[in-house]
Computed example of a mutant assay.
Amino acid sequence: MNKAQPLPTRYDPRELTDEELVARAHDELFHITRAYEELMRRYQRTLFNVCARYLGNERDADDVCQEVMLKVLYGLKNFEGKSKFKTWLYSITYNECITQYRKERRKRRLIDALSLDPLEEASDEKTPKVEERGGLDRWLVHVNPIDREILVLRFVAELEFQEIADIMHMGLSATKMRYKRALDRLRDKFSDTSET
């Protein structure tokens, strides 16, 4: 029976794969955070972009990113590697985005219900509308939340369909079908507006 070789203590985390960093984190956390920090550094920008596009504003995206990074920090010790680290990370991100989205929706309903002047409340928005930013964001406001998440995971996180299906707890064919239908709807919508 082969015994696992002890990992050398000195290493450059930038030269290691995600899997090697996860193995390091298993051994080092919580005393040493070098491997964890490198994993977060690698995915930080894409993680933020996924959250911002899904939630529609940077403030909520930043909050969700912080929550995701904490969940990864405390969850890495138990991560068994049944999926890629990247898939596991975006699964956590997806769940946190859903939670935040629901919280914001409940908060908006409460504000609307308590507001004496709903028009004044609606015009008091400080954050820019997603449509004003252009690019992919301009498209994403025209799809429902599940289709939006599929498109974000595909285009921003650059995940394979099987990884997206695993994260969203959907079948592979259902994921591909929703992806295709969302793209078809967007093509129809934007071809209609370009013709007028």
Rank of each mutant, 00 (worst) to 15 (best):
C51H: 06
P128N: 05
D192G: 02
P118H: 06
H142G: 00
A35Y: 04
T33P: 02
A52Q: 14
R59T: 13
N144V: 01
L47E: 09
R181M: 12
S91L: 04
L39N: 09
Y179Q: 14
P13H: 10
L39I: 03
C65L: 11
D60I: 03
L116V: 02
K84I: 01
L116H: 11
D166S: 08
R45D: 12
P6V: 04
R148M: 01
E163S: 05
F155L: 14
Q66Y: 04
S91F: 01
N2Q: 12
A165V: 08
F79A: 02
N144S: 09
E125G: 06
R108S: 07
L159E: 09
S194I: 12
S83Q: 10
L110S: 12
K180C: 03
V64L: 02
I92M: 01
L186S: 10
R138Q: 10
M40I: 14
L39C: 05
Y179C: 13
R45K: 13
E58H: 09
H26R: 09
I92H: 00
Y179A: 13
K126S: 15
E20Y: 09
I167R: 07
R108L: 05
E131I: 11
V156M: 09
R10I: 14
K82V: 03
L70K: 05
E131Q: 10
V50H: 00
K3C: 08
E104R: 15
E58V: 02
W139M: 14
E37I: 00
A165L: 07
L119P: 06
D112T: 08
R133N: 01
E67A: 02
I167M: 09
G134F: 00
P6S: 09
R24Y: 08
Q44W: 03
F48C: 01
I92L: 01
D166Q: 05
R14L: 08
C97P: 12
K176V: 11
Y74W: 00
L186C: 00
D184I: 12
L119V: 06
E20H: 10
R109C: 09
V130G: 07
D184A: 15
L153I: 06
T17N: 07
M1R: 08
V68N: 06
N95P: 02
P13F: 01
E163K: 05
E132V: 04
T46Y: 02
K84V: 10
P118K: 13
A113Q: 04
E125F: 07
V68A: 03
R133T: 11
P145Q: 01
K129P: 08
P145V: 00
Y43M: 02
E131Y: 05
M168E: 03
